[in-house]
Amino acid sequence: MQNSHSGVNQLGGVFVNGRPLPDSTRQKIVELAHSGARPCDISRILQVSNGCVSKILGRYYETGSIRPRAIGGSKPRVATPEVVSKIAQYKRECPSIFAWEIRDRLLSEGVCTNDNIPSVSSINRVLRNLASEKQQMGADGMYDKLRMLNGQTGSWGTRPGWYPGTSVPGQPTQDGCQQQEGGGENTNSISSNGEDSDEAQMRLQLKRKLQRNRTSFTQEQIEALEKEFERTHYPDVFARERLAAKIDLPEARIQVWFSNRRAKWRREEKLRNQRRQASNTPSHIPISSSFSTSVYQPIPQPTTPVSSFTSGSMLGRTDTALTNTYSALPPMPSFTMANNLPMQPPVPSQTSSYSCMLPTSPSVNGRSYDTYTPPHMQTHMNSQPMGTSGTTSTGLISPGVSVPVQVPGSEPDMSQYWPRLQ
């Protein structure tokens, strides 16, 4: 039975679970980093996980050691009161100082060594604690504590007292930064006198190289990059290397530039699409467009005044059976039934097929058609009795279509119309 579990990581490298990497692998990681390889490249070359490479390099940059820390136990506290007071002093002298600059000053002034120097995250935590204590304490208590930490007896009751030896409130920041720059020169002199001055200088240079600022491109470089971006948004590694040799930039910087440029292009394309949609959409909808001609068919113009009344309900007709019959029939052209047409008796099958359309009241044959006459024609229609054979009435077949029909004066039988409509 094995005491430890061995495995293979996602890159194909072998590791022992819970145990640190061998010293030979750690040394190779540092050597590759000094030669300029990126952590992701080191991870692929040595088949070590990216997190492990970053952790080893980060500890090497901070402490200069590649040895693993002790497994188990607690780390001794490195942010001692003396170190905290120095950090507060540096922050007062130059409020814009960075944590890694404070760390360098602690090393250069001999406050800490490589073994007990606090990390950048520890210094940031100390600065946050100082800021929170400043908010919790009152103004007087804060000034007393700062005077105690600074070891001075001057008056701290006013704002300019934060910067000793100065009279203009805006000047101390520059003086403090100048003092810090002077301390940086002392850093070089002190570290050069040490035993491991060369190694420390190499480590600091490598650290500065990794902690780079934003790349500033010249106009020629920007023009070359934009020209390549117009050709393709995704250049391959050969195109990037050719462009890197042409404009004297690292291939990694060119790759990052193209990634950022593609993101910018997507944002601009989104804005262009929004403007295009806004320009195509009308600002207001016309009133006429809300009524579609496919839904509402136009009603033909009436030929006679009587045809303006298109349904039985508008003429005072309360018989719903006839109203439904007229509205359900398709529109037909106007025609006239003459008196000489043969009077065919209704076929029983045809009569039964339209039995649902006729009223059940037996008085329908005896009703006159003056009910369908509009009010303004009552006088004219009353002067001509319906009993004469020459009287013409208008029957409504569908809305908007008038059918003048000659009705025999002897017997106005409704059943004569249905064979004609089939």
Rank of each mutant, 00 (worst) to 15 (best):
Q2T: 12
N3L: 11
N3Y: 08
S4E: 12
S4L: 10
S4V: 11
G7D: 08
G7I: 07
G7E: 09
G7C: 15
V8M: 10
V8Y: 06
N9K: 02
Q10D: 04
L11V: 06
L11H: 06
G12V: 00
G13C: 00
F15A: 03
V16A: 10
V16T: 12
V16E: 07
V16H: 13
N17Y: 15
N17H: 15
G18Q: 01
G18V: 01
R19L: 05
P20Y: 04
P22L: 04
D23S: 06
D23R: 08
S24N: 12
S24D: 08
T25E: 06
T25I: 07
R26L: 01
R26A: 01
Q27M: 15
Q27F: 10
K28A: 09
K28T: 07
K28R: 10
I29S: 01
V30E: 01
V30S: 03
E31D: 13
E31N: 11
E31F: 06
L32S: 04
A33C: 07
A33L: 06
A33V: 06
A33T: 08
G36P: 03
R38K: 06
P39C: 13
P39W: 03
C40A: 08
C40S: 11
D41H: 08
I42S: 02
I45W: 08
L46Y: 01
Q47M: 08
C52M: 01
C52T: 10
S54C: 10
K55Q: 02
L57S: 03
G58E: 02
G58I: 15
R59E: 03
Y60C: 00
Y61A: 10
Y61G: 03
Y61P: 01
G64C: 04
G64T: 02
G64L: 05
S65Q: 10
I66G: 02
I66L: 08
I66A: 02
I66M: 06
R67L: 08
P68E: 04
P68K: 04
A70E: 06
A70S: 10
A70F: 07
I71F: 07
I71H: 13
G72S: 04
G73P: 01
G73V: 02
S74E: 01
K75M: 05
P76W: 01
P76F: 03
R77W: 05
R77A: 01
V78P: 03
V78E: 00
A79E: 01
A79V: 07
A79Y: 02
A79M: 13
A79N: 14
T80A: 02
P81Y: 07
P81I: 07
E82D: 09
V83A: 08
V84Y: 05
V84W: 06
S85I: 08
K86M: 10
A88N: 12
A88P: 05
Q89F: 13
K91C: 00
K91M: 02
R92D: 11
C94I: 07
P95S: 10
F98K: 10
F98M: 04
F98I: 07
A99I: 03
W100T: 07
W100V: 07
E101A: 10
E101P: 04
R103L: 04
D104S: 10
D104T: 10
R105M: 12
R105F: 09
R105V: 07
L106C: 08
L107P: 08
S108E: 10
S108H: 12
E109C: 11
G110T: 14
G110A: 09
V111P: 13
V111N: 10
T113W: 09
T113L: 12
N114K: 13
P118I: 07
V120N: 15
V120Q: 05
V120M: 12
S121P: 06
S122L: 04
N124H: 14
N124L: 06
N124S: 07
N124F: 04
N124Q: 14
R125K: 05
N129I: 09
A131I: 10
S132H: 12
K134Q: 12
K134M: 12
K134F: 15
Q136N: 14
Q136R: 13
G138H: 14
G138Q: 14
A139M: 08
A139D: 12
D140T: 14
M142E: 13
Y143F: 13
D144E: 12
D144A: 09
D144V: 09
K145M: 12
K145E: 12
L146F: 11
R147K: 11
R147Q: 12
M148D: 14
M148F: 07
L149A: 14
N150A: 13
N150T: 11
